[in-house]
Design a protein around this nucleic acid. Structure first.
Length: 210
DNA sequence: AAAACGGGGGC
DNA sequence: GCCCCAGTTTT
């Protein structure tokens, strides 16, 4: 079976689309910070309770971290995240006129914003061709044999060489969904996987827990 | 390189 | 009861 990585990526995107209903840059930024190491369901609870109580960057910038604890608690790491969200809000007002910058170099200066969070904002809110390499993208790309890498940084460099840039953005969310449903960290469902004919890791995972 | 943050859910 | 989750920062 001849490999066509672009086709495989397109198939993953088609079968596991991720709908980003929210595109407001500030809300996407806050939502993505809340989502770090946190399941979607819990992220959503925290996000909704936060923005049903407070409206925008100006209101949130004036709060003390303690005032956010109970609102965002379902997302976990709520002390860190509360402080970061408020500090981010203050910096946006002081340095960026209350707007979210649309450059990677500026975004990653914000507290609690690394490459992954920044790239998600760049794609979802600004429509840029940004590849956000998280644990799912890193794990799946290696399992499929698209790359052979040790770190997410390496994965980002190698993936960008073999995946057309117009697929980078959609691939972000689709790899997460694919990773949650099929290509799971533990006990992946290789027998249900539509790529199991070409996947070099299939035999390894078949009938095994890892 | 490893630890720390963290509630909620899967197994 | 133990482990993991759209990571990032600090030690």
């Amino acid at each position: 079976m001849k490999r066509d990585i672009k086709k495989e990526a397109e198939k993953i995107i088609h079968m596991f689309p991720r709908i980003n209903s929210e595109t407001d840059p500030y809300k996407v930024l806050v939502e993505t910070v809340l989502s770090q190491r946190t399941k979607d369901e819990n992220t959503e609870k925290a996000f909704k309770s936060l923005f049903s109580r407070y409206k925008n960057v100006f209101e949130i910038s004036k709060l003390n971290p303690e005032e956010l604890y109970d609102l965002i608690k379902p997302a976990g790491m709520y002390r860190q995240k509360s402080e970061r969200i408020i500090n981010i809000s203050r910096i946006l007002i002081e340095k960026y006129n209350g707007e979210v910058p649309d450059e990677l170099e500026e975004l990653i200066k914000l507290p609690g914003v690394g490459r992954k969070t920044a790239n998600i904002v760049l794609y979802v809110s600004f429509g840029k061709e940004a590849l956000a390499v998280d644990t799912h993208v890193h794990r799946i790309s290696n399992r499929l044999g698209w790359v052979e890498t040790k770190t997410p940084e390496e994965t980002e460099v190698q993936l960008k060489k073999i995946i057309p840039s117009e697929l980078w953005g959609p691939l972000n969310g689709s790899m997460v969904n694919f990773g949650q449903r099929i290509c799971k960290p533990i006990s992946p469902k290789c027998m249900e996987c539509f790529l199991n004919e070409v996947c070099p890791s299939k035999r390894v995972y078949k009938n095994k827990s890892r």
